[in-house]
Every structure is written in structure tokens, then in C-alpha cells.
Design a protein around this nucleic acid. Structure first.
Lengths: 200, 200
DNA sequence: TTGGGTCGATTGACTGGTCAATCAACGAAG
DNA sequence: CTTCGTTGATTGACCAGTCAATCGACCCAA
């Protein structure tokens, strides 16, 4: 077997894990499934990762840090809160479009698995909610949003709605088509933001 | 040992399972944990249920059928869609207030566990989304809601937002107090419905 | 009234299979 | 000949589900 640079094998394993986790779910996949999918010996997984959990950890952290960065970027560069929230939604929807399997794993096995895996990452997850809440709070301060909705509620409703829609596509509850896709995102952002506007 | 009517022991086991599932999560609880919590022998669990899965099944179906009934009741007796959606939200929030442990189990182990347990109940879960979507569609037909939002999107956003808020309380992401509670529900319904109103 | 027979409820030790993690050995490269 | 990536058989723990045995309520016949 060619002795590829270590980093490549590691990546190979991570990418294989994405596919297998997405297909079977974390609990139902054996470490040997990951190794087989990567075309690598069982033991090698343990050479690069200390446990099966750590593989998922790595995948989550890798992706979630991008989301956190994207939210802060949106906050920094956007003009009004509506535009900022739109950018956040766009990043999440695009993440799904770009790598649906990875997003499925993140959402199903971490973000929504608050009792098992999510527990470990509650802090990072909360950080995302809080960054979004900050966008809402600023919008309230500037008068763009009404002030009687707690920013954290608005944030979690916003994120929860997005995740629910993605879940709908992931599990076929909503039929998927590209047109639906961007349209749905715009409608979601529009609806929520309209709802957050000051009452006339 | 007093020979209580069979139904009571069965109930005892179900109630114990709620507590243990809520505390440790479904995967992490052994059948012996349920039996211990119920103060009953290991084997008795298998006398009343064919498997550990069936215990969770029973809990889910028991509760979800109430939700389905409540949504249809809200649709039948409500005047305008805003009131109907308010009634749906009230039922869900009240379910949580009345039995937080059961709701935690339903949400965490079934509704959001779309890869493991939710898979079995996808159909029942979807039925709830569709009933809510019908309320939205009727609202659009009557002119109370704007027509450019697909009812199913609105429904899933609405439900996703509610579930995310409940998850926030369940896992302490949002600090809980009774005042917050009813207020949050009203704000959620108001915000979403305002967002769904026709643009002026 | 008593003895014994039936049947469902109840018990918990045990089994079989699964799988995460270990580890001793191999081989390529320098 | 040392280092380190790589291999895969083996181990040890864990746990769902089984099953043979016991218990207690109730009935009926002597």
C-alpha cells in the first residue's frame, strides 16, 4: 500500500465517516464500517482518532466553527438586520446544498442529539444562538425590529425554523427541488423579519 | 407481593421509562434501569412489552395521538387562523408544562431522532405538519394570510420554532420561568402570524 | 373446610451476539 | 536499524432478550 502523507489518510477517514454516518446514523455505524468505506484497515482509525466519538467531534467542530465565523461576518458586513439574517440563512442553506451528507450528520447527530452528542457541544451551539440574538438585539436598538421580543427567543425560533426545513428536505418530508430551495430561504427570512418588524 | 391489576404494573413500567429515558436518553438506558426504576423484575418488562423499542413506541403513540387530535380540534373550533395556531401552540406548551419529562423524551428521542426512532414514526409526524399546513392554507384562502408562502413551509417553520424553544428550556439554553413561558408562546405566535399576514 | 389444580403474573440468572478498543507484528522509507 | 504508518485478529465488556422456576389468586370437588 502506498504510504500517502498521513494527513491524506486522516482526511480519507473523515470523509468516509461523513458518508457512513449520513447513511446509517452514528449509533448504527461500526468503526469497521468507517474503515471499510475508507478502504483502510480497522486499526488505522484508532491511529488517527482516539475513539469513534472523536471522529464525529472533529467533523462537527470543523463545520461549526465555519458557521460561527459566517454569522459574525454577516453581522460585521451587513447593513440592516434583515440583510444580516438573510446572509446567515444563506450560509446555512448553501452549506446544505454544498455537502448535504455532512449537514445531515451535523444536524441529526449533534445539533438535534442534545441528549447524547449535543451535550458535549452545548456551549458551541449556544454560541451560535447568541450571535444571532445579537443581530436581533442590534436591530431592536436601531428601531428596525420591535423591542418586545426577547432576542434569544427570536434567534432560536429563526434557527429552529431553518433546521426544521432542512430536516424536511433531508428526510423527504418536503419534496426537494432547486427552485423551492432558494425561494424557501427567502420566504423564511422575509416572514420572520416581517414578523419582527415594529407594529404599524 | 400484592398482585396489583395487570394494567397498573404496565403503567408503572411506562411511567418509570419516561423518567429514565428523560434522565439518560433512550440509548443509554438499559432495560434493567427501567425495571429498577419501576421496582419490578427485569423479565416483567418483557411480559408487557416485546422489546425496549416498544416501550418508547407506546409512549410516543400515546402522546402524539393527543397532539393530532388537538390540532384538528383547534382547526374545527377556531375562528381565524391566528387563533387556531395559537391553540396549537398552547397545547404543545401546556403538554410540556404538564409533563416535561415525557415531552423531552418525545422530542429528543423520537421527533428529532429522525435517523433512528423517528424513522418509524415519520408518517405520524408528517401528519401533524400537514394538519398545521391545512390551517395555514385555509387562512390563505380566506385572505387572512398572504398566499406566496407554501403552507407546508409555514407549518414546518412554525413547528420547528416551537420545538426549538422547548429544546432551549429542556437543555437550559434558555433560562426558564413561568412568566417567560406564556409570554414566549404569545410572542412566537404573534411574530409568525404577523409575518404571514398579507403585505400592506 | 380443605386439598389440590390451573393459570397468569412475576422473578432473575443466563446466553448469545455485538462491537469498541487494544496490541503485537509487518513493511516501507530514510 | 530505526521510525512510523499500517494491518487485522483478539479481547473484554456490555446488554437485549430468553426461559425455567416460583408465587399467589381463584375455583371446584370431596
Amino acid at each position: 500500500m502506498a504510504q500517502a502523507p498521513p494527513a491524506e489518510k486522516r482526511r480519507l477517514i473523515l470523509d468516509a465517516a461523513i458518508r457512513v454516518f449520513a447513511r446509517q446514523g452514528f449509533h448504527a455505524t461500526r468503526v469497521s464500517d468507517i474503515a471499510d468505506e475508507a478502504g483502510v484497515a480497522y486499526g488505522l482509525v484508532y491511529h488517527y482518532f482516539s475513539s469513534k466519538d472523536e471522529v464525529l467531534n472533529e467533523l462537527f467542530i470543523e463545520r461549526w466553527s465555519l458557521l460561527l465565523a459566517a454569522i459574525e461576518e454577516a453581522d460585521r458586513t451587513g447593513d440592516d438586520p434583515r440583510e444580516k439574517l438573510g446572509a446567515v440563512a444563506r450560509f446555512i442553506f448553501d452549506s446544505y446544498r454544498h455537502d448535504p451528507e455532512l449537514m445531515k450528520v451535523i444536524i441529526v447527530e449533534v445539533t438535534r442529539a442534545a441528549n447524547s452528542f449535543g451535550k458535549t457541544h452545548l456551549e458551541e451551539i449556544r454560541r451560535a444562538y447568541e450571535s444571532i440574538a445579537k443581530i436581533v438585539a442590534d436591530g431592536q436598538a436601531s428601531g428596525a425590529f420591535r423591542g418586545d421580543v426577547a432576542p434569544m427567543f427570536a434567534s432560536m425560533s429563526f434557527y429552529g425554523a431553518i433546521e426544521q426545513l432542512l430536516s424536511g428536505w433531508i428526510f423527504g418530508t418536503i419534496p426537494a427541488s432547486d427552485t423551492d430551495f432558494d425561494e424557501a430561504r427567502d420566504l423564511l427570512v422575509t416572514t420572520i423579519c416581517d414578523g419582527l418588524e415594529p407594529r404599524g
